[in-house]
């Protein structure tokens, strides 16, 4: 079994290498040059990160006692987090509605197929394209960002959710159907609670994804920290861009830790020992 697994991994790696070799037409020398360029770019343009992005902006005048709250980093990040938060909540609810109509174990195939096509269509446009569309339709600003991310979230989470629903054990569904529970009651009282661990994990992942992508959609004028990244890129202030990227990384790590905490309420591990905030930073000692 172990050797078969190694064999499969080896074949997959070979296929990947072979495909890449075809794509770059065998010119591996470019990769070496690329690393050198990256090293020069990083050491000369990005390092050290310019932490002035965490200081108060010169205009408008800061009215808070704490300078950080008037900084580009804080204001941009907060706007991105707010956009991601609203879009994730709206997208999650929309995705639940559509995924319950796309799961083959919940609805007949003639309902599931059209809904799946709709979700695929929503997902096939990246959030960046959605952002461009909404910027054209309703103009620059966070509302375009929220709408773009909501649409993408529905498509992306919808797929994850209906695949989760299809993977659930059938016995609880069968018992509920035989008992005569309505479709909506089965969804709300059986399917969602039974899959709560996965749904929460997907929700937190999507929030984190939306925070990360908030940086990209900001570049096309849909609000958030991406707007500042885009501005600094235009003026070649890469050390400030780097500082903002580190800030995004920290926020993403915090969301990941938060996800672990939230999911501990609905998984078996949490029954034994729910992690404390300290556990997130220090690995608990084995007893």
């Amino acid at each position: 079994m172990k050797y078969r697994l190694f064999g499969i991994i080896f074949i997959l790696l070979f296929l990947a290498w072979h495909t890449l070799n075809g794509l770059i037409e065998g010119d591996w020398g470019r990769l070496g040059g690329g690393f050198e360029n990256l090293s020069v770019f990083f050491s000369e343009s990005m390092w050290p990160p310019n932490w002035s992005v965490l200081e108060a902006r010169s205009y408008p005048v800061c009215e808070s006692d704490i300078e950080f709250f008037c900084s580009v980093g804080y204001l941009g990040m907060m706007e991105t987090i707010k956009i991601a938060f609203v879009a994730t909540i709206l997208g999650f609810i929309g995705a639940l509605f559509f995924s319950s109509l796309a799961a083959r174990n919940l609805v007949p195939l003639y309902v599931a197929i059209p809904v799946r096509i709709l979700l695929s269509a929503t997902r096939s446009l990246p959030s960046l394209i959605w952002a461009i569309l909404f910027v054209i339709v309703i103009g620059f600003g966070p509302l375009s960002g929220v709408l773009a991310m909501t649409f993408y979230t529905v498509g992306y989470l919808g797929k994850l959710q209906y695949e989760t629903f299809e993977g659930m054990a059938s016995d609880s569904l069968e018992a509920s159907r035989a008992m005569g529970l309505s479709r909506s009651s089965i969804l709300l009282n059986v399917v969602i609670p039974e899959n709560s661990n996965h749904l929460l994990s997907q929700l937190m992942f999507m929030f984190e994804y939306n925070v990360r992508h908030g940086t990209v959609i900001g570049i096309v004028g849909a609000g958030g920290i991406g707007y500042y990244i885009s501005t600094y890129l235009k003026f070649l202030q890469y050390e400030k861009v780097f500082a903002l990227l580190i800030l995004i990384f920290v926020v993403v790590v915090i969301i990941d830790l938060l996800s672990m905490m939230v999911r501990s309420f609905v998984n078996d591990e949490g029954d034994v020992r729910r992690p404390t905030w300290l556990n997130f930073i220090l690995t608990p000692k084995e007893e």
Binding site: A169, D171, S172, L173, E174, A175, S176, N189, V190, P193, E194, N195, S196, N197, V266
Partner: peptide, 9 residues
């Protein structure tokens, strides 16, 4: 059912 059909979570 044999596997009881309970909502575990």
């Amino acid at each position: 059912p044999q596997r009881l059909g309970l909502v575990r979570h």
